[in-house]
Design a protein around this nucleic acid. Structure first.
Lengths: 111, 111
DNA sequence: GTTGACGTGCAACCGATGGTTGCATTCAAG
DNA sequence: CTTGAATGCAACCATCGGTTGCACGTCAAC
């Protein structure tokens, strides 16, 4: 079954870009992330809270800053669910297509 | 580039279930969908509006009802984008892992 | 044709959420 | 100790998913 919390966490475009930045930079703080994003630091902080709550990132206090890093295992889980839903729809599409072809073939035989 | 509108359209769990129902039933109306969902007809109607606006479904007035069907090509596009983002993250994760291994190897050589 | 039932559309309302601004707090550095 | 950078907290606003209520068509049956 799919985890709606994980999906909706990844569903927000800003959070997706944040995950991307955290991956390429190998971690970051709310301030450093907000500098590379079109939103304020506070908005980034809220998003980090959401990502933390579903376990996609993990915070470590470092001096006066709060460094966040991606939890690779959890992100891998999220990726797996994405591809799972995609595969389901893909299968349904192909099934519909097969049925459509079969019906067309039968109709052809009848007429 | 990724299409945020398409993504956020399939980002909602109710809309995902609606797409699923439309696929297995081969189409439906706001009323028939709401009977198979834990939300009201009006909520379903709003979601159908969203899906229609991004081209994932297509409506055809039929007597007094309004029948909706999935636009397979557009859904295929959405699936492609899902797997695209997933692949990007997957690649980043593996790259990080490779770098980590290399650093570990170097550290091992140094120490 | 009227009546009634079914399906739809529109509007108002509510709670959650993504976003903002502003301010208080903490901690490193001079 | 004071200053500046980083965080945290609170209030506020717009949007969105969801609801209820009502008005408008349309099909069918009397």
């Amino acid at each position: 079954m799919i985890d709606d919390d994980l999906w909706s966490a990844v569903g927000d475009p800003t959070r997706r870009r944040m995950l991307d930045l955290l991956l390429v930079d190998g971690g970051g703080t709310a301030t450093t992330l907000s500098e590379q994003l079109p939103v304020t630091r506070q908005a980034v902080a809220k998003h980090l809270g959401v990502l933390d709550r579903v376990g996609l990132v993990h915070a470590t206090p470092l001096g006066r800053e709060r460094r966040y890093e991606v939890d690779e295992a959890q992100l891998a889980r999220a990726v797996a669910q994405l591809s799972s839903v995609g595969a389901t729809w893909d299968a349904r599409l192909q099934r519909i297509k097969r049925i459509a072809e079969r019906i067309q073939r039968q109709t052809g035989e009848i007429s």
